[in-house]
Amino acid sequence: MTDFPAAPAGAVQQPQPFALHGRIGRVRYLAYSFGAMIALLLVAIVLGALLGAIGAGPAVAAGLMQLLVGTLMAAANLVIARRRLHDLGKAGWWGVLLLVPLLNIAVTLWLAIGKGDEGENAYGAPPAPNSRGAIALACVGPGLFLAMVLYSAVDAYKTIGERTRAANSRVF
């Protein structure tokens, strides 16, 4: 068995997307979060197709998908947040605040815009410079997320308007 030498002190840590330890900066936090969201969306699509193929009812399928995908997303978010918190010089336990409704919004914003520690801290060497792919995903991801939210809001508004018009036409 070969023992690999330890990295020299002050060495920049290379990115490892699925590592449980280490530090990631703001850009990788956004990129990894969006990447996890895309991966779990694909899991939901496959799970929905499988549940539809075996004849599960829509309510059962939706409940199972929500439980599985929600649990996986929470776990992925906590792992990613832990690494981001380490970059901020905080213990990973602060990530539990992401499970508190409304407070999770403030914590997510802090993780997304807070400046990490310069140089080495108690959790390791600073993260490596960001790749073009990480930068692109970090820029495109939040924009696509906002577009999906706006699309859903507009669609819901249209649906409410259609129901209101239909209800009014029956009354008169």
Rank of each mutant, 00 (worst) to 15 (best):
W94E: 03
K115T: 13
N104K: 03
T164C: 03
P17C: 04
P58F: 05
G92N: 10
R163A: 10
A56G: 06
A59M: 13
R163N: 11
V60F: 11
L88A: 08
A61W: 06
P126W: 08
L67T: 08
L50H: 02
L146Y: 10
A138L: 04
C139V: 14
R26C: 01
E162A: 15
A36T: 03
L68R: 01
F18W: 12
D117G: 07
L72N: 08
L111T: 05
A106I: 07
V79H: 03
P126E: 10
A19R: 15
V60K: 12
V96Y: 14
V46Q: 05
A125T: 12
N130H: 13
I135H: 12
G35C: 07
C139R: 12
M1T: 10
L109V: 03
D117M: 11
K158H: 10
V107I: 11
V60R: 12
E120H: 06
L40P: 02
Q66G: 08
P126S: 07
I160T: 11
A138F: 01
P8E: 11
G119S: 01
I45W: 09
H86R: 05
P17H: 07
M1D: 14
A74Q: 12
K90R: 15
H86A: 00
L40N: 11
I105Q: 15
W110G: 05
A106G: 04
G143Y: 00
G95S: 07
K115Y: 00
A39C: 03
E162Y: 14
G116E: 04
V154W: 14
L42E: 02
I45C: 04
T159Q: 13
H86N: 04
K90A: 10
G95T: 05
Y29I: 06
P8T: 11
S169N: 07
G143N: 00
L68M: 09
L64A: 01
A11K: 09
A61T: 02
